[in-house]
Amino acid sequence: MYTQGLDQAGKGDSPKSGGETKEQLDAFQARIDAEEKIEAKDWMPEAYRKTLIRQISQHAHSEIIGMQPEGNWLTRAPSLKRKAILVAKIQDEAGHGLYLYSAAETLGVSRDQMVADLLSGKAKYSSIFNYPTLTWADIGAIGWLVDGAAIMNQIPLCRCSYGPYSRAMIRVCKEESFHQRQGYEIMLTLCRGTPEQKAMAQDALNRFWWPSLMMFGPNDSASKHSAQSMAWKIKRFSNDELRQKFIDVTVPQADFLGLTVPDEKLRQNKETGHYEHSDIDWQEFFDVISGNGPCNETRMAKRRKAHDDGAWVREAARAYAAKKAEASAAA
């Protein structure tokens, strides 16, 4: 999902344990099993802390980078109403990033460190934001599919065992529904418009369908850290379970729009009720997440430039605060 980087088989080290005793680990697991929430200053195994720092910061980075594909259409939104909506949505993405950085900081990592890790390329963000937004319909497809997939993943995260993360996700989920509905409404408007507009919507679905399915991360059989995250109740459902759920609810929505999901093998299994689908092109997924997607370089270049261009503002605010503090001390 927004934290797929964690799931890569064979990549990245498993967080090391911090020399905890078996009694400590058992007592901790007992709290988790009893559905107790873990709070910031509570004792926790080092690996639990590190896993959460990685997951929450990757999630935050995804929200921040996620502003770019949408920002691409801000000045070209088809009406003032759509523009105002898009600005509000992008502001929400920034807000979500900030809730999450705030949650990660409770685990003892500094905001500056997280930002530095994003800018240096050490930290990952979701593969989905490395695809370009070529037409206005892509803004519709992102809201409908990308935010739809995000909701699927984030609702169980509201029950995550770590209190600050769970509370941040509750806040995010409240706002995410607006994102998905406005996206679907864009698609609906296009599909009820001219044949060219409908074709534009179909094209956006064609390009965003598979990358959206990849958001859920590798198949369960290839997902390296899943078992431990499940035991710690950071993760509640497996990648494949969530992906299936997403497909099952999304295909009828595409049918309603009169659009065709770009998968010839897609069909509903009458017995299970679930949709069966073609295999996912995992090579594409690994290429994109390891830096070779269509937009990885431009996304990072833009983020670094924004950070550098903002340096004087951060500097000036600090200088102004220092000056004011001096003046009030003198008075």
Partner: peptide, 23 residues
């Protein structure tokens, strides 16, 4: 509700408003 970074108290209030009370 959470936390924000800010250079001074006044900015902290403004940042908190923009981050936590958009609705």
């Amino acid at each position: 509700a959470g936390s924000v970074h800010a250079a001074d108290d006044e900015m902290a209030l403004n940042n908190a408003r923009d981050t936590y009370t958009r609705r």
